[in-house]
Simulated assay, not measured.
Amino acid sequence: MPDDLLSHLIGPSPYASAWLWTAVVLVFGLIAWYAAVFALTSRRRLRDLPVLGAARDELIRRRAVRAVRTIGNRYRAGELEPGPAGAAVSGELRSFLHAATGMNAEYMQVEAMAVGKLAPAAPILFELNDVQFNHRSVVDVGALSEATEELIREWT
């Protein structure tokens, strides 16, 4: 009989270690949430932050190169005509320039690009416009897509 009462005098069993790991994960999640809110709502642009800006630029560059390569491969396979292929490559290049520089490259005339920060892209865009709007153009869209990929890879 006295041994039966002894079980009620011992303290509670220790907590499971899963609670500790749950608390650690929740604390790190909260820190990540506050960091994301701070980064996305700060007055500085995301591209101005050292690590995030470099990662963002690299992701934009890879996506643009992949899209231009896909268009070039589709043109070489005969799925696209030169005009639509040139328009697609031009759109991707302009989209990349807008994301990389912040300038409205989608709406700028090529002549205006030739004198500004976007000058390295102007010769390719001139040829893409020729392919897009001139049915007798002899410019190879496959070569232009490769040149566009190289321009995007080397853009600083």
Rank of each mutant, 00 (worst) to 15 (best):
residue 17 S to K: 11
residue 126 F to D: 15
residue 110 V to F: 03
residue 32 A to G: 12
residue 53 G to F: 04
residue 138 V to P: 04
residue 154 E to W: 10
residue 31 I to W: 11
residue 130 D to A: 13
residue 90 S to Y: 02
residue 30 L to P: 02
residue 155 W to I: 06
residue 117 K to P: 15
residue 49 L to G: 14
residue 9 L to A: 10
residue 149 E to Y: 07
residue 78 G to S: 02
residue 68 V to D: 04
residue 3 D to S: 12
residue 52 L to H: 02
residue 101 T to Q: 10
residue 156 T to N: 14
residue 56 R to D: 15
residue 47 R to G: 11
residue 19 W to Q: 10
residue 36 A to F: 07
residue 67 A to E: 08
residue 3 D to V: 15
residue 131 V to T: 04
residue 58 E to K: 08
residue 115 V to R: 14
residue 36 A to M: 08
residue 43 R to T: 10
residue 41 T to N: 07
residue 39 A to Q: 13
residue 143 A to V: 10
residue 8 H to D: 12
residue 72 G to F: 00
residue 105 A to H: 04
residue 87 A to E: 14
residue 18 A to R: 12
residue 11 G to A: 13
residue 21 W to L: 14
residue 55 A to N: 13
residue 72 G to I: 00
residue 22 T to G: 09
residue 27 V to N: 03
residue 74 R to M: 08
residue 96 F to V: 00
residue 48 D to Y: 00
residue 130 D to N: 12
residue 86 G to H: 00
residue 125 L to A: 06
residue 71 I to Q: 00
residue 63 R to S: 14
residue 77 A to G: 10
residue 125 L to Q: 06
residue 108 M to V: 00
residue 112 A to F: 10
residue 116 G to E: 03
residue 38 F to R: 15
residue 11 G to N: 13
residue 1 M to K: 08
residue 137 S to Y: 04
residue 105 A to D: 02
residue 37 V to Q: 14
residue 87 A to T: 08
residue 26 L to F: 05
residue 150 E to G: 12
residue 100 A to C: 00
residue 118 L to I: 01
residue 50 P to I: 03
residue 8 H to I: 09
residue 146 E to Q: 13
residue 69 R to C: 02
residue 74 R to N: 13
residue 46 L to Y: 08
residue 51 V to T: 09
residue 156 T to Y: 07
residue 138 V to T: 15
residue 132 Q to L: 08
residue 37 V to L: 12
residue 77 A to T: 08
residue 21 W to T: 11
residue 150 E to K: 14
residue 39 A to Y: 10
residue 132 Q to F: 05
residue 75 Y to N: 02
residue 125 L to M: 11
residue 86 G to P: 00
residue 84 P to Y: 01
residue 147 A to P: 01
residue 19 W to K: 07
residue 69 R to G: 03
residue 123 P to W: 05
residue 34 Y to Q: 15
